[in-house]
Design a protein around this nucleic acid. Structure first.
Lengths: 113, 113
DNA sequence: AGTGTATGTATTGGCAGCCAATATATGCGC
DNA sequence: GCGCATATATTGGCTGCCAATACATACACT
């Protein structure tokens, strides 16, 4: 998987892994990697600015948490975040259909009349 | 469909529409738009540099053609181009599986033990 | 003859957005 | 005290597509 393959789909990934409950940054990276079968390895320089942006536009809310003595910033979906996640899912579906139908046409090339 | 959604998948699209025979630039744009159901509208500033690059690295070959009096540059797949197209198809499949499994997990969130 | 529109190729500048590198801090094992 | 895993954060840079622009030919209409 090439490095910046997630370009344009990052927001959806972040919202999706937060759907089942709040997570902090490091756990988000692990969740994405886990759910993608190890194929998607996000970096901190990728997700932290993205999480800040998503919070700023109201799709996430965050709160500091203490695990033992260690501080963690936990992010969770807002209502707007859930609605946007639904939008991202339809956009993804539309996107894959569009690219897919060009890449693998239903009518195989060479069989046209 | 957001403007630069094809980022990272353009080469595959171009190779795919050329699989069934040679086409010139304008026809390639039309073919991609047609096969995507009108969702993918590539611009000349997008495909011409890409076609040049694909020819330069040996995936396409081109020849000038005269339709009536008008000159057209027709591109066709080379052997290496066909092999790369196959690679692009597996990469696409892997990519959609990776993003898709994060966006729409097989085990719906909230049903975990 | 002139104007507008469709067809066709080509180049340039700009910028969104992700990554690599880097910095900082804590807790734990040894 | 040293190294490693955990954890958050920022900066600079590069890739790669797009918007804008330019130019040429053919044809229809007036």
């Amino acid at each position: 998987m090439k490095a910046d393959a997630v370009r344009g789909h990052l927001d959806g990934l972040l919202l999706a892994v937060l759907e089942s409950g709040p997570l902090h940054g490091y756990a988000i990276i692990a969740a994405v990697q886990d759910r993608s079968g190890g194929l998607l390895e996000l970096r901190t320089g990728t997700i932290y600015p993205a999480l800040n942006r998503l919070e700023r536009i109201g799709l996430l809310s965050s709160s500091w948490e203490s695990a033992g003595e260690r501080r963690r910033r936990c992010y969770e979906l807002t209502g707007a975040g859930r609605r946007t996640l639904a939008d991202e899912r339809s956009a993804w579906s539309e996107f894959t259909a569009a690219i897919g139908s060009v890449l693998n046409p239903a009518v195989p090339p060479g069989l046209a009349t």
